[in-house]
Design a protein around this nucleic acid. Sequence first.
DNA 1: TTATAAATAATAGTATTACTATTAAAAATG
DNA 2: CATTTTTAATAGTAATACTATTATTTATAA
Lengths: 225, 225
Amino acid sequence: MNWQLHPKMNEKLYLRDPEQSEIGKNIIKNAVSLVRKLGFEVFNFKKLAEEIPTTEATVYRYFENKHRLLSYIVAWYWHWLDYQVMFKTNNLPNAIDKIKVINQILTWQLQEEHAVIDEINLEDLRQIIIYEASKVYLTKHVTEDNDFQLFKPYKNLCTRISDIFKEYNSDYAYSRSLASTIVEMAHFQDFFMTHLPSLTDFAETKSLKNVNDYLDSLVFSALYK
Amino acid sequence: MNWQLHPKMNEKLYLRDPEQSEIGKNIIKNAVSLVRKLGFEVFNFKKLAEEIPTTEATVYRYFENKHRLLSYIVAWYWHWLDYQVMFKTNNLPNAIDKIKVINQILTWQLQEEHAVIDEINLEDLRQIIIYEASKVYLTKHVTEDNDFQLFKPYKNLCTRISDIFKEYNSDYAYSRSLASTIVEMAHFQDFFMTHLPSLTDFAETKSLKNVNDYLDSLVFSALYK
DNA sequence: TTATAAATAATAGTATTACTATTAAAAATG
DNA sequence: CATTTTTAATAGTAATACTATTATTTATAA
């Protein structure tokens, strides 16, 4: 498990490790709040440099381009989420409880508000995941990026969840697909609930608790023996 | 149902109706093949104009920008898919069969190869949906776009599927969310299977039949009374 | 402490993108 | 045939996504 003070990030994600300098940490911190605020398409290194403040050229010495910076941020989140799942399911007596905790984590039910870690605002970060995470892999260069192992933290998370599904029902044939389904749907249903509510059954209350209940229902019926 | 010879598209999607001229139809046809080939980020109106061939300025008289053109193409697909579901589930005696047909349609099991309609290559179109469809709504202007009803065809499709789920089990509380889940997952699991196979259980055969089986299993277990 | 190297700030510049404007020629329409 | 609309050809602009240069500051190590 690569989580001590902060996760061990894949070196291909950056040109210069942003954890190793103040300006590097400020790049990450401000990138998270600015991508959240502007959206990834409108966000750029010039605006980021103004926020920090530093120069565009300095940001470019840390990250090749804004897509790699987004990949870094998204990977950081999956690392963190994987750690949450590992930590909070650890020592639970049975798979049922573990699965319930997973769905609570995914739907932010265990998250204190305004939580900040390594100066990164986790609420901003989750919103970035909802809006931008899929853009990291939905590209024509997904194969090269995958060869660099850039999606490893996401895969690790899904594997961890999948293993717990297997623990609950070792005969179930689709534990990996079910894991990626619930991770994606935790975020998608949140987005739909907020912006396109008729695509969900949560239009009235718009509460993540409903998404949690939906995921529980989906997973336990699928895994039912 | 808005499908005669071709669907009645939302007028907000274009500046000038591409169905009404040869050059307009060529814009759509070539946009589909070029977005498929280059990916949406690399695709632009200059390259599209070269393909047709016409000028960049002419393309801009049909579509405000490339995002709107993508929205048009994606909406066209959802229209078409909704029509497929309507047509192919029509007159089926029971909801079970209808649901099976839906999952077959979503996973391309009923699709003849190299099918072309309105000069649009459907195989290219499906790949565009897989790679690019979510980018249409994952923006900061999703609310305005939604106010223009740009996502109506997608909602119509999900509503149609959701109604069939309700027909199968009227007590089920999450029929809308389940509908958006299977539509998204039909495409996501296809992408994962191809590019990030460890996120699925289909790494060996990489066949859409497996995705079909997974969706059947997911839906019928969720709806089981 | 000083020498050396590395990082940053300040500035400038380039290629490409995403458009807008202009005008003449061609096509459609009445 | 006259009028309007559309297209082609061309040019141009503002913004974006970088790269390069050099002086200054900061970190390190001898």
